[in-house]
Every structure is written in C-alpha cells, then in structure tokens.
C-alpha cells in the first residue's frame, strides 16, 4: 500500500528523463562543491610538507605522508587539552541547556500554571531586542566575574529563548493535559509527572534541542575569543583560530618563500594544521548524516503556533 503510493507520487511530480538527467547533474555539482573543500583539507593533511611548500596545496600531491598526524601526536598536550575543554563544555553545556530549556518550556506550556503568561512574556521579550556585544561583555566580566573560567564558555549559551518557545508548542501538542490530570489524581507529584510521563513523550523534541545545543557548543569560538586568555581553557575551535592567525602573521612578515620555509620549522606545519582541522570536523562529519533526520524534524517541530 505504502509502496504503491510512493511510486505514484514519484511519477506525478517528477521531470521527464532528459530534464531529470540535466538537473541531477546540476544539483550533484553543487552537492559536490559542498563536500569538496573538506576532501581538499583531508588530502592536504596527508600531503608531505615538501610537496606542500614547493607545489602548494593540491588535490593530488606529489608525495603522500602521515607526517602531519605524527607531528600532531607528538605535540598532543595542547591539542588533547583543547579537545578535553571542548568535550567538557559540550557535554555539560548541552545537559544544562536541554534541562533548563525543557523545564521552562514545560512550565509555560501547562495551562494550570498560574504565572505562565508572565513567564511566556518574560521569555518572548528577550527575542525582540539584542543587548549587544558590549553590554554582555561588561556584565560577564565585571558583574559575574567569569572571565577566564569554563563558565564563560558554557553560560552564554545555556538557555535559548527561541528553543523555549519551540518546545512550548511541542509540549502543548505532544503532551495531553488530561494525562497529566489523571496522574495528578493518582497522587503523582509534579516532579514525577515531568520525569515519568512528560519526558518520555517529549524525547524527539528534546533530542532536537540537545542536538542544536551540542552543535553550538562544539562549534563555538566566539565566547573563547571574548573571554578566554588562559591557555589551559582554550577550546578546539579557538586553538585552530589562534594557529591560523599565527601562520597568517608569519607569512605576512616573511617576504617570500625562502624565509617562509625557514620560519616553518618552529610553527605547526601546514599538514599538521590541516590534520587538526580534520580532527575537529570528523565528529560532526561522521555523525550528522545520522542525526540529520532529527534536525530536519526540528525545523518543522514548532511550526504550528497556538
């Protein structure tokens, strides 16, 4: 039955064979252009330093080499530290973000919650206006005194007002108020209702917001740029950024190739640099095809407004 329906829709809304081939090629080209830079970086990370310096970056280097990754394993202290910071921030941040967002959204989704209008408005207002980078910076550094702490990497993204509104709609649609009422009559506490009845029903929504949060934390360099000076607290993305600006500075100071090549011995080499990029992309590139379906669902999850 399902099969039959699928086939008939394919036939109705699809191109003729000729147009189909043309458009397939066109879309495929763009799709490849999205993967190509990553492939390029991977190839560079496996190129030998010699061929990089003489021939530049190439899709097919004269000489392959694992030297970049070997060098990386030797200088692993800094890298491992950055990886550790990023992992810690991502795990802790995602847990905090998902908890705070879900509980807030659940409360304002309950029609029996007396202050729900107030707190809904309290959340909506934050979406209308941006306090701005300077004001946030002053509050973070001067009022909260969080400069150079791990919290500076976690707290700025700990709650997402937009996700709260999305989740509120999700709870309203997914969790029937009568189930909650029934549980209450049976004597369940609010905590128990939330953990044992609401959460299991809300797993898809919570998976989606956790995903967004985890991605945000893993990819974050902006908060590190503003608040982190201690080298032990540098996350992976910020480390990559620092290395890049070092290289950039050196290549601007050195006039031409020869000096550049000599200066290369004491900074992370080209291949090493790209190997680090590969390592920081790998978790996302390997896992996103699997979580993509949650992501796509997340785009439509809050689609219906109440």
């Amino acid at each position: 039955m399902w099969r039959k329906k699928e086939i008939s829709t394919v036939e109705i809304r699809s191109f003729g064979p000729g147009a189909n081939l043309c458009f397939n090629i066109l879309v495929a080209l763009f799709a490849i252009s999205c993967l190509l830079p990553l492939i390029f970086i991977i190839v560079i990370s496996f190129s030998s330093e010699h061929s990089l310096v003489t021939n530049g970056y190439q899709f097919w280097p004269a000489q392959w080499s694992m030297a970049g990754y070997e060098y990386l394993s030797r200088m692993s202290g800094k890298l491992l530290n950055a990886l550790g910071v990023t992992l810690l921030v991502t795990v802790l941040g995602t847990a905090i973000n998902a908890t705070f967002t879900a509980t807030y959204a659940y409360s304002i989704s309950r029609s029996s919650f007396r202050y729900r209008r107030f707190f809904t408005l309290f959340c909506l207002i934050t979406m209308l206006f941006t306090p701005g980078m300077v004001a946030n910076y002053i509050v973070m550094t001067n009022l909260l005194q969080l400069k150079d702490t791990l919290w500076a990497l976690i707290l700025p993204m700990a709650v997402s007002p937009f996700n709260i509104i999305v989740m509120r709609t999700f709870f309203k649609r997914q969790v029937n108020e009568s189930i909650i009422e029934a549980a209450r009559i049976d004597g369940a506490s609010e905590m128990r209702i939330f953990c044992q009845i609401v959460l299991p029903l809300a797993v898809p929504g919570i998976a989606t917001i956790s995903l967004f949060a985890a991605l945000g934390y893993w990819n974050d360099w902006f908060n590190a740029l503003l608040y982190i000076q201690n080298t032990r607290l540098v996350p992976l993305q910020y480390l990559l950024m620092q290395i890049q600006s070092n290289i950039q500075m050196l290549s601007q100071n050195a006039t031409q190739g020869a000096q550049y090549a000599t200066g290369l011995s004491n900074i992370p080499k080209e291949a090493t640099q790209m190997a680090m990029v590969v390592i920081s992309v790998a978790p996302i590139a390997l896992s996103y095809p699997f979580f993509q379906k949650y992501f796509v669902r997340g785009l439509t999850i809050g689609g219906v407004k109440e």
Partner: peptide, 22 residues
C-alpha cells in the same frame, strides 16, 4: 512549576535584562 522556570528566568535576567540596562 515555578522551580522549573527559575533557572531559565535567572539566566534571562543576567544575560538579557541586566545587559539591556547596561
């Protein structure tokens, strides 16, 4: 339910309402 709201509300105070006045 108020307890559920409080962490998020405190966050909004420190990362939105106070900065707006700042």
């Amino acid at each position: 339910l108020l307890l559920f709201v409080i962490p998020g509300a405190i966050w909004m105070i420190f990362f939105f309402y106070i900065p707006v006045f700042a």
